[in-house]
Amino acid sequence: MTYKLISNGKTLKGETTTEAVDAATAEKVFKQYANDNGVDGEWTYDDATKTFTVTE
C-alpha cells in the first residue's frame, strides 16, 4: 500500500510517499525520514487516507 507523509516542519515542508506492508512499517520509514531531515514534532495518522502528518 502507498502511505503519505505531510511534513509541516520549521525547515522542511512538503509531502512524500512510501510503499509499505502496513502503517507501522510506513511510520518507521517516515520517522527515520523526518529524523534525517531534522524534523521533530507531533505526529498524527489518518487511516482513511493512509496519511501521516508531522507538525513542528
Score class of each variant (00 low, 15 high):
residue 48 A to T: 11
residue 17 T to I: 10
residue 46 D to R: 03
residue 28 K to I: 11
residue 28 K to D: 05
residue 6 I to W: 05
residue 45 Y to L: 02
residue 27 E to W: 15
residue 52 F to G: 00
residue 36 D to W: 07
residue 51 T to F: 01
residue 2 T to L: 13
residue 25 T to W: 07
residue 8 N to K: 12
residue 50 K to L: 09
residue 25 T to K: 05
residue 50 K to N: 06
residue 2 T to H: 06
residue 56 E to Q: 10
residue 2 T to A: 05
residue 6 I to L: 08
residue 37 N to W: 12
residue 20 A to W: 02
residue 14 G to M: 14
residue 11 T to H: 12
residue 54 V to H: 03
residue 14 G to V: 15
residue 41 G to Q: 03
residue 43 W to E: 01
residue 45 Y to H: 00
residue 15 E to D: 06
residue 51 T to Y: 02
residue 43 W to F: 05
residue 4 K to E: 03
residue 46 D to P: 00
residue 28 K to Q: 10
residue 39 V to F: 11
residue 5 L to C: 05
residue 49 T to F: 05
residue 7 S to N: 05
residue 17 T to L: 10
residue 27 E to I: 07
residue 24 A to E: 11
residue 30 F to H: 00
residue 42 E to F: 13
residue 46 D to M: 03
residue 20 A to M: 03
residue 15 E to Y: 14
residue 39 V to P: 02
residue 3 Y to P: 02
residue 36 D to R: 10
residue 30 F to D: 00
residue 24 A to F: 09
residue 36 D to Y: 07
residue 42 E to R: 09
residue 47 D to C: 07
residue 47 D to H: 10
residue 7 S to F: 15
residue 23 A to C: 13
residue 46 D to V: 04
residue 7 S to T: 15
residue 29 V to T: 10
residue 38 G to P: 01
residue 30 F to M: 02
residue 54 V to Q: 01
residue 44 T to Y: 09
residue 48 A to R: 11
residue 55 T to L: 08
residue 31 K to S: 03
residue 13 K to E: 07
residue 32 Q to Y: 04
residue 37 N to L: 13
residue 6 I to S: 04
residue 31 K to Y: 05
residue 25 T to E: 14
residue 1 M to H: 14
residue 43 W to L: 03
residue 51 T to G: 01
residue 12 L to V: 09
residue 50 K to F: 09
residue 8 N to M: 13
residue 34 A to V: 08
residue 47 D to A: 13
residue 15 E to T: 13
residue 20 A to E: 04
residue 46 D to S: 05
residue 53 T to P: 00
residue 30 F to L: 05
residue 17 T to C: 12
residue 33 Y to K: 03
residue 39 V to M: 12
residue 8 N to Q: 11
residue 11 T to E: 08
residue 41 G to C: 03
residue 46 D to G: 01
residue 33 Y to L: 11
residue 54 V to N: 01
residue 35 N to V: 13
residue 15 E to A: 08
residue 7 S to G: 06
residue 36 D to Q: 11
residue 35 N to D: 10
residue 15 E to M: 14
residue 55 T to M: 09
residue 42 E to N: 09
residue 55 T to C: 09
residue 51 T to L: 03
residue 35 N to H: 15
residue 1 M to T: 14
residue 48 A to L: 13
residue 18 T to G: 03
residue 20 A to V: 04
residue 20 A to F: 04
residue 18 T to N: 03
residue 15 E to F: 13
residue 36 D to H: 08
residue 23 A to T: 08
residue 24 A to W: 09
residue 10 K to S: 10
residue 43 W to Q: 01
residue 43 W to N: 00
residue 44 T to S: 13
residue 4 K to Y: 15
residue 34 A to G: 03
residue 16 T to M: 15
residue 9 G to V: 13
residue 20 A to P: 01
residue 36 D to G: 05
residue 28 K to Y: 09
residue 37 N to C: 11
residue 37 N to D: 03
residue 18 T to V: 14
residue 39 V to Q: 05
residue 46 D to K: 03
residue 18 T to E: 03
residue 6 I to Q: 06
residue 34 A to H: 02
residue 53 T to D: 01
residue 11 T to S: 11
residue 32 Q to V: 07
residue 20 A to G: 03
residue 12 L to K: 08
residue 4 K to S: 06
residue 30 F to A: 00
residue 16 T to F: 15
residue 4 K to W: 13
residue 10 K to N: 10
residue 48 A to G: 07
residue 44 T to V: 08
residue 43 W to R: 01
residue 22 D to A: 03
residue 45 Y to I: 01
residue 40 D to Y: 15
residue 1 M to C: 14
residue 29 V to W: 15
residue 47 D to V: 09
residue 34 A to R: 02
residue 48 A to H: 09
residue 49 T to Q: 06
residue 8 N to I: 15
residue 35 N to G: 09
residue 38 G to F: 06
residue 10 K to T: 13
residue 7 S to Q: 08
residue 3 Y to H: 03
residue 56 E to V: 11
residue 21 V to P: 15
residue 52 F to Y: 05
residue 29 V to C: 09
residue 14 G to W: 15
residue 19 E to M: 14
residue 6 I to F: 07
residue 31 K to I: 06
residue 49 T to V: 05
residue 13 K to T: 11
residue 35 N to S: 14
residue 14 G to I: 15
residue 25 T to C: 08
residue 8 N to L: 14
residue 47 D to T: 07
residue 4 K to F: 13
residue 41 G to Y: 04
residue 42 E to A: 10
residue 23 A to G: 04
residue 48 A to V: 12
residue 29 V to H: 12
residue 42 E to K: 10
residue 45 Y to M: 00
residue 39 V to W: 14
residue 2 T to P: 05
residue 50 K to G: 05
residue 16 T to S: 09
residue 45 Y to V: 00
residue 44 T to L: 08
residue 30 F to N: 00
residue 11 T to G: 11
residue 38 G to H: 08
residue 16 T to Q: 09
residue 23 A to E: 06
residue 52 F to R: 00
residue 45 Y to R: 01
residue 54 V to C: 04
residue 7 S to H: 14
residue 41 G to I: 03
residue 12 L to R: 06
residue 4 K to Q: 05
residue 2 T to W: 12
residue 38 G to L: 06
residue 6 I to M: 07
residue 15 E to N: 07
residue 28 K to F: 09
residue 41 G to A: 03
residue 23 A to Y: 12
residue 32 Q to T: 08
residue 19 E to A: 08
residue 22 D to K: 02
residue 16 T to E: 05
residue 6 I to G: 02
residue 2 T to N: 06
residue 1 M to N: 13
residue 44 T to A: 10
residue 13 K to L: 12
residue 53 T to G: 02
residue 21 V to E: 11
residue 51 T to S: 04
residue 55 T to Y: 10
residue 54 V to E: 01
residue 5 L to I: 03
residue 20 A to I: 02
residue 4 K to C: 08
residue 51 T to C: 04
residue 6 I to Y: 06
residue 51 T to W: 02
residue 3 Y to C: 03
residue 42 E to G: 05
residue 5 L to R: 00
residue 31 K to A: 04
residue 51 T to A: 04
residue 10 K to L: 13
residue 4 K to D: 02
residue 14 G to C: 15
residue 52 F to H: 00
residue 5 L to G: 02
residue 31 K to L: 07
residue 50 K to P: 00
residue 17 T to S: 10
residue 37 N to K: 10
residue 43 W to I: 03
residue 35 N to K: 15
residue 8 N to H: 12
residue 22 D to S: 07
residue 8 N to V: 14
residue 54 V to D: 00
residue 52 F to P: 01
residue 56 E to R: 05
residue 56 E to F: 10
residue 12 L to E: 06
residue 11 T to M: 12
residue 39 V to C: 07
residue 54 V to F: 14
residue 26 A to V: 02
residue 6 I to K: 07
residue 7 S to Y: 15
residue 34 A to I: 07
residue 20 A to H: 02
